[in-house]
């Protein structure tokens, strides 16, 4: 397994946000975490990338424990994290944002080629490469946030609510992009409130409810699950 959470718990101000969660992510494909607002989905990703500290349990990435490492050290190991709300650097240009994603890399020529790859994947970013990120639409900012994470050459990509606040057409486009990235061999952990989209894209799914995993299984099976249909798929 590429990534493993073992009985991981996180508490914010004494309130438990994640309770003894165990998950595994294989070295390929898409694993999704679905659940309601406040169920702990974002906390799970923040724990993986080191933004949230574990109260107990451990996180193992590529054979090494990474819980307790600073976020920049975890990024250095190849964990790319597209945070909730995109969090692009508003006062940096599109290109500066992308180059920030390559901060740790010293292979200058390959970085330049990867930059062109990202522009090839997101033509709208190429048109706006000299614009400040603040001037982009929500969808473009999401693409920029994903592109920035790709510039790290991630061995694992964490996507937090990429569909949030976007028009349905744009959501479809993002879904297509996620599938494409997964197709290039990058394993993805996708956190979504849009369970329909998430279960369509993913191979395996975890359901979080108030900080605990209540259900897990193949995405297809979960899509047919009665409880999931009622609670998350609006039918």
């Amino acid at each position: 397994m590429l990534l493993e959470l073992r009985e991981a718990s996180v508490a914010y101000n004494m309130v438990r946000a994640l309770h003894r969660v165990s998950m595994t992510v294989p070295p390929g494909g898409i694993v999704t975490i679905i659940g309601a607002n406040g169920a702990g989905k974002t906390t799970a990703l923040r724990a993986i990338s080191g933004l949230a500290r574990l109260a107990e349990g451990e996180i193992v990435f590529a054979g090494d424990r990474i819980d307790g490492l600073a976020p920049d050290r975890i990024a250095a190991r190849g964990v790319g994290h597209v945070p909730e709300g995109r969090r692009v650097f508003a006062d940096l240009t599109v290109e500066e944002n992308l180059r920030t994603g390559a901060f740790l890399r010293r292979d200058v020529d390959q970085v330049r080629r990867d930059l062109e790859d990202v522009y090839g994947r997101f033509p709208r970013l190429a048109e706006r490469r000299r614009q400040y990120a603040r001037t982009l639409s929500g969808g473009e900012q999401q693409m920029l946030a994903i592109g920035r994470a790709l510039m790290l050459r991630p061995r694992l990509l964490l996507l937090d609510e990429p569909s949030m606040g976007l028009a349905p057409v744009v959501v479809e486009e993002i879904a297509r992009i996620v599938r494409e990235i997964s197709g290039t061999g990058v394993p993805i952990v996708l956190v979504e409130q849009n369970a329909e989209m998430a279960l369509e894209l993913a191979d395996y799914a975890y359901v979080l409810e108030t900080g605990s995993v209540t259900l897990q299984g193949n995405a297809e099976e979960l899509h047919g699950n009665e409880h999931i249909r009622r609670a998350y798929l609006g039918g």
Binding site: L51, P71, D72, H81, T100, G101, L152
Partner: peptide, 13 residues
């Protein structure tokens, strides 16, 4: 601009 997002790019806080 965003210390957390910067840390996710590998920039040591």
């Amino acid at each position: 601009q965003d210390p957390e997002a910067a840390a996710l790019q590998g920039i040591s806080m």
